[in-house]
Amino acid sequence: MSTFDEYFNRLSHPDAAVRRLAILALAESGEVTLVPRLAEMLRDPDPEVRLETARALEEFEGAEVVDALLAALADADPSVKAEAAGALEGKADAASLPRFLEGLETSDAFVRSAILRAVTPLCSTTALTPALAALGDGDAMVRLAAIGVLGQLPGDSAVPPLMTATRDESHEVRRAAVDALAIRGIAIPDALADPEWQVRRDAAEAVGRTKDFDNAKALLAALDDGYWQVVQEAVRSLGRIGDVRAVPALGRLLLEHPESNVRKEAAAALGTLAPDTASVFLRQALDDPDADVRKLARRALENPAPKSRG
Results as ranks from 00 to 15, higher is better:
2 S>A: 15
3 T>F: 11
4 F>G: 06
5 D>C: 09
7 Y>D: 12
11 L>V: 11
11 L>H: 09
14 P>M: 09
14 P>C: 09
16 A>Q: 12
16 A>P: 08
17 A>C: 07
18 V>C: 02
25 A>D: 14
26 L>W: 01
29 S>Q: 13
30 G>V: 00
32 V>P: 15
35 V>H: 07
43 R>Y: 10
49 V>I: 05
50 R>T: 04
51 L>P: 07
54 A>D: 05
55 R>D: 10
56 A>Y: 03
60 F>Q: 03
64 E>D: 11
67 D>A: 15
76 A>N: 13
82 A>E: 12
83 E>F: 07
84 A>T: 02
84 A>E: 03
85 A>K: 02
86 G>P: 00
87 A>C: 10
88 L>M: 05
91 K>S: 05
92 A>V: 01
94 A>G: 09
94 A>E: 15
96 S>H: 07
98 P>G: 08
100 F>K: 06
101 L>D: 09
101 L>G: 05
101 L>N: 07
101 L>P: 00
103 G>T: 04
106 T>H: 07
106 T>S: 15
113 S>N: 09
116 L>W: 03
119 V>M: 10
122 L>P: 04
129 T>D: 14
130 P>F: 06
135 L>E: 04
139 D>G: 04
141 M>D: 14
145 A>I: 02
145 A>F: 03
145 A>L: 00
148 G>H: 02
148 G>P: 04
152 Q>E: 13
153 L>R: 04
154 P>S: 12
155 G>E: 02
156 D>A: 14
157 S>G: 09
159 V>T: 08
160 P>T: 08
160 P>R: 08
162 L>Q: 05
164 T>M: 12
164 T>P: 00
168 D>P: 04
170 S>I: 04
171 H>E: 15
172 E>F: 13
173 V>L: 01
175 R>F: 04
176 A>T: 06
180 A>W: 03
180 A>D: 03
186 I>E: 02
187 A>I: 02
187 A>F: 00
187 A>E: 08
190 D>H: 12
190 D>E: 13
194 D>P: 00
196 E>H: 15
196 E>V: 11
204 A>S: 05
207 V>H: 04
208 G>H: 06
208 G>M: 07
210 T>P: 02
211 K>L: 13
217 K>W: 11
218 A>H: 13
220 L>Q: 14
221 A>F: 11
225 D>S: 10
225 D>T: 01
227 Y>E: 15
229 Q>G: 09
230 V>T: 15
230 V>I: 04
234 A>T: 01
243 D>P: 05
244 V>N: 14
245 R>W: 02
245 R>A: 13
245 R>H: 11
245 R>I: 00
247 V>P: 01
248 P>W: 00
250 L>M: 06
251 G>D: 00
251 G>K: 00
252 R>I: 12
256 E>D: 15
256 E>T: 13
256 E>C: 09
257 H>P: 00
258 P>D: 12
259 E>C: 10
262 V>I: 05
263 R>D: 08
264 K>C: 14
267 A>W: 01
268 A>F: 14
271 G>W: 02
273 L>I: 09
273 L>H: 08
275 P>K: 08
275 P>D: 03
275 P>H: 07
278 A>S: 14
281 F>A: 12
282 L>M: 09
284 Q>K: 11
290 D>P: 00
290 D>C: 02
291 A>R: 12
293 V>G: 10
293 V>E: 11
295 K>D: 13
296 L>P: 01
297 A>V: 06
298 R>F: 07
302 E>F: 01
306 P>L: 11
309 R>F: 12
